[in-house]
Simulated assay, not measured.
Amino acid sequence: MIIEQVFVIGTGRCGTTTFKQACTHIKNFTCAHESRVNQLGEERLNYPKFHIECDNRLSWFLGRLENQFDQNKVLYIHLLRDEHQVSESYKKRFINGLIMPAYTSGIYIDLPKHIEPFKLAIAKDYVKTVKHNINSFLKDKPNQMTIDINNPKQSFIQFWQKVDANGDQKLALQELAKRFNYSGSWQKRTEENNLLIRMFHKVRRIIIKFPGFLRNA
């Protein structure tokens, strides 16, 4: 049976961006990372044939994936990373609009997310919950595999063969050795954004007060 769609799922913070970059070197499949997260209803899962989608949020749409696609023509890749590393990464991401606040105050109700020691415990609980949901879903799926992002080479070669990929496998493997969207880069961007915001407010205060400076000159 020919594989028409590949869904790369996981907890998040597990290398989906890196995996997507590697897949850009496959010529007979399109690939994307979280390409339809802003679409509602049927459009949320409206992926084309011969497409690889890397999206950890698909772990919340597993039933709909099963209903919408021919499971004999779908390959699920459960992308894994050390649970402690994932949890430590999520511990730093209690920012409104991201998944940790939603899990803390939406799936659960009003967990103490502002108390620092609880952040790691909440992150660990989230990771465990998503992994169990994915493992349960994959039990009866005819086409599935797991790939450890910390040691992906052999499994990625098997994936390449399974989908009969055409492209530059060597370059793809080189991409897997890089880190994309890691916590350090995100934290640096956050600090830079905060600096820009502070500078903006300072400039704004100067502009507001400037007429007064002129009158008192």
Score class of each variant (00 low, 15 high):
1 M>H: 11
3 I>K: 05
3 I>N: 08
6 V>M: 01
6 V>A: 02
6 V>G: 00
11 T>Q: 09
13 R>H: 03
14 C>V: 10
14 C>L: 02
17 T>E: 05
20 K>C: 08
23 C>K: 06
23 C>M: 09
24 T>D: 12
25 H>G: 08
25 H>T: 14
27 K>W: 05
30 T>E: 10
32 A>L: 01
32 A>T: 04
32 A>Q: 07
34 E>P: 08
41 G>A: 00
42 E>H: 00
47 Y>W: 13
47 Y>M: 04
48 P>C: 05
54 C>Q: 03
55 D>F: 07
57 R>W: 00
58 L>P: 08
60 W>V: 04
62 L>G: 07
63 G>K: 13
64 R>L: 10
64 R>S: 10
64 R>K: 13
65 L>P: 04
67 N>K: 12
67 N>S: 13
68 Q>D: 11
68 Q>L: 10
71 Q>H: 14
73 K>F: 02
74 V>Q: 07
75 L>G: 07
76 Y>P: 12
78 H>P: 02
80 L>Y: 07
81 R>S: 07
85 Q>H: 12
85 Q>W: 05
87 S>H: 08
87 S>G: 10
88 E>V: 02
88 E>C: 09
89 S>C: 08
93 R>T: 11
95 I>K: 01
101 P>C: 10
105 S>K: 10
107 I>K: 12
113 K>H: 01
114 H>M: 01
115 I>E: 06
116 E>H: 04
118 F>L: 01
118 F>W: 12
119 K>A: 03
120 L>Q: 05
120 L>I: 14
120 L>C: 05
121 A>T: 13
121 A>L: 15
122 I>D: 02
123 A>G: 07
125 D>W: 03
126 Y>I: 04
130 V>M: 06
131 K>C: 13
132 H>D: 15
132 H>C: 10
133 N>D: 15
135 N>P: 04
136 S>K: 14
136 S>Y: 14
136 S>M: 07
137 F>M: 04
138 L>N: 13
139 K>M: 13
142 P>G: 06
144 Q>G: 09
144 Q>L: 11
146 T>G: 12
146 T>V: 11
147 I>D: 01
147 I>Y: 01
148 D>G: 05
149 I>F: 06
151 N>V: 02
151 N>C: 07
153 K>M: 07
153 K>C: 08
154 Q>I: 15
156 F>P: 00
157 I>L: 06
158 Q>M: 02
159 F>W: 05
161 Q>K: 14
161 Q>L: 07
162 K>R: 11
166 N>F: 14
167 G>R: 09
168 D>F: 11
169 Q>M: 15
170 K>V: 15
170 K>N: 15
170 K>Q: 15
173 L>K: 01
174 Q>W: 12
174 Q>M: 13
174 Q>S: 12
176 L>D: 04
177 A>H: 03
178 K>D: 01
178 K>A: 03
180 F>Q: 09
181 N>H: 12
181 N>C: 00
181 N>R: 09
183 S>V: 15
187 Q>Y: 00
188 K>N: 08
188 K>E: 02
189 R>G: 01
190 T>H: 12
193 N>E: 14
194 N>E: 15
200 F>Q: 05
201 H>E: 11
201 H>Y: 12
201 H>G: 00
202 K>R: 14
205 R>I: 11
207 I>P: 06
208 I>C: 13
210 F>A: 12
211 P>N: 09
212 G>D: 09
212 G>R: 12
213 F>G: 04
214 L>G: 00
214 L>W: 02
215 R>T: 03
